[in-house]
Nucleic acid binder design. Structure first.
Lengths: 195, 195
DNA sequence: CATAACATGTAATGAGTTACATGATTAA
DNA sequence: TTAATCATGTAACTCATTACATGTTATG
């Protein structure tokens, strides 16, 4: 589970409130580990409970900003976690399930949905490329910058990977080739069989 | 949520029991949507409750195989779901969080962990390549085979993507370059500040 | 018939999501 | 001073994971 450690990392950079963190997540590591503000507030409360962070001693009523800073134990826990041995999480890609299902009971209108998503991923890719041009112009970066740049490049590659997959899927879906002998013959007739 | 529809897809191919499905998941679409046997049994019960599948009328006691077949409503639901408009799920990659964290508080022993995972992903890639050679020799496949082959190729590309990311990460981590000026100097002292 | 392996299932926990509630700040 | 927005938080629910429980079949 990475969320608490993603928060600790963000707090290493500077003390922040829940809404600060939510906003920064949207811009940076959030592309690799999304979190809603509810998750963030809950996790911050837990981290404080565990003594890894501390809320700055300003007024702490509901509705007012409440900044947290990381404590030495939090830093230590973060370093411990980074190198932990864990099995990589399994990929969960619903597009693959859809393609698999389409192979079994298609054809469907899956191509429309893929085109829609293709647009989303293309936009995300463009955003990343802008970040790249803006923040990582030269080469020979210091270690920490090189790591952050690598994370961004992985984002770029992941979007490219997705775009290629979707493009090839569309080629197959639109080729209007036959399935095996019969099987889906009736479906090709385009009868509006109700919904 | 794709699990029920992954199960429906598997049941289109042939009626199966929970343990059959668990075994087949391990070999095929499971690489893109993993499920434990508990999830599968629960989901099968729900699907039967919803009238989308039906358990074959054999004895139905605990401990004995219990096969399900898909019903026409199940097929219909599957076709409906395939083309549904849904936003793509967010990527959740803990390696990226670790790299980001390493940039903030490193260096750590993250390189060891990455090497360990690299081996896992390399093995998975080899497995996929074997499937490819075994099942998709020629070209010009019929539509359904082409789709299944695409899913496998995406698996291959995903593993390659991961391997490249890990390799580049190792290059940076092992280069032993300086971070920005000072910053992590105190952390190098290794004082056990008492958990 | 005892034991291992298989097949199905229950229970508890925790992460993630959605809907909503409440206090504070800002702007018309 | 009211309305809009921001910031924090609660509650309910679902999915996923882990540990465990129970019954059946196959093997010696």
């Amino acid at each position: 589970m990475s969320l608490p450690h993603a928060l600790l990392t963000a707090l290493v950079e500077r003390p922040s409130s829940g809404s600060d963190l939510a906003a920064r997540f949207d811009k940076t590591i959030g592309y690799f580990w999304r979190a809603t503000h509810q998750q963030i507030y809950r996790e911050l409360a837990r981290l404080e409970e565990a003594g890894l962070i501390q809320s700055l001693p300003e007024e702490t009523t509901r509705g007012r900003k409440r900044a947290y800073k990381i404590l030495p134990t939090g830093r230590k826990e973060l370093k411990r976690w980074i190198a932990l041995n864990e099995d990589p999480p399994f990929l969960r890609d619903d597009l693959m399930v859809r393609l698999w299902a389409e192979a079994a009971v298609g054809p469907t209108k899956l191509d429309k949905e893929i085109e829609r998503r293709l647009k989303l991923h293309t936009e995300r890719l463009e955003t990343y490329r802008k970040y790249e041009a803006r923040d990582y112009g030269g080469d020979d970066h210091p270690r920490d910058v090189a790591l952050r740049y690598l994370v961004l490049r992985c984002g770029i590659r992941y979007e490219s990977y997705w775009i290629q997959a979707a493009t090839e899927a569309l080629e197959i879906l639109k080729a209007d080739k036959p399935c095996k002998p019969d099987k889906g013959a009736t479906a090709a007739k385009k009868r509006p069989t109700g919904k």
